[in-house]
Amino acid sequence: MSLLQVSGVTRRFGGVIAVNNASLRVPEGAIVGLIGPNGAGKTTLFGIISGFVTPSAGSVSWDGADITGLPPHRRAQAGIARTFQIVQPFAGLSVVENIAVGAYLRHPARADATRIATDIGTRLGLGPWLDRPAAALTVAGRKRLELARALATGPRLLLLDEVLAGLNPSEIRDIIPLIQAIRAEGVTILMIEHVMQAVMNLCEQLYVLAEGRMIAEGNPVTVCADPRVIEAYLGHGAAARMQSHA
């Protein structure tokens, strides 16, 4: 049975249809990727899954139960954690306090939450910055902080919204094993990502969203060879031209 099932969700913003009848399934224990050109509606779809955006139609079910109307904090309590594409640190708090806010979700005692926050922060390479204000972190540091905070909530499903965007190749090489290790501990992952090297390395299942519609799904190699996917990224007729050049 799949852990997360999104069935035919649509979201309109006035006259714009950001997500149009999109469906996806995330099996327990998998790493699933969600890719698509800019403006395809990926982040809106993430918003629908995490409860920040209410779908105009369709439903979201979690572990067999319908959660379409559940507010974000209840979904986090149920085990869905998300990161934000545009990082949202608690700028006035220290790094370890930031992570502890996540840890407090399942550990009411300060000592436990702080210990867990320190462990997770150290593991994600934030050790030297734990007592510094979050506002002092670099972009790469803030991305790690997003990941650390989400992880500290003890999630069953981690929604990663472009955690690699804005990082340089060596930073990306550092983070990929971390994501693999998180998954190895039994956390299911659904990730939006533009960095194809990472997507190909990490994901066993890929969904492609373009102009709000789910246009392809499958394993990364077949999906990337799919003419519809190539055309979504490179424009109409691009697939045929690539074929003729080959």
Partner: peptide, 12 residues
């Protein structure tokens, strides 16, 4: 500090 981030971390 940030209401959306707080919500995402399970805070009502």
């Amino acid at each position: 500090e940030n209401e959306d981030a707080a919500r995402a971390l399970g805070i009502d």
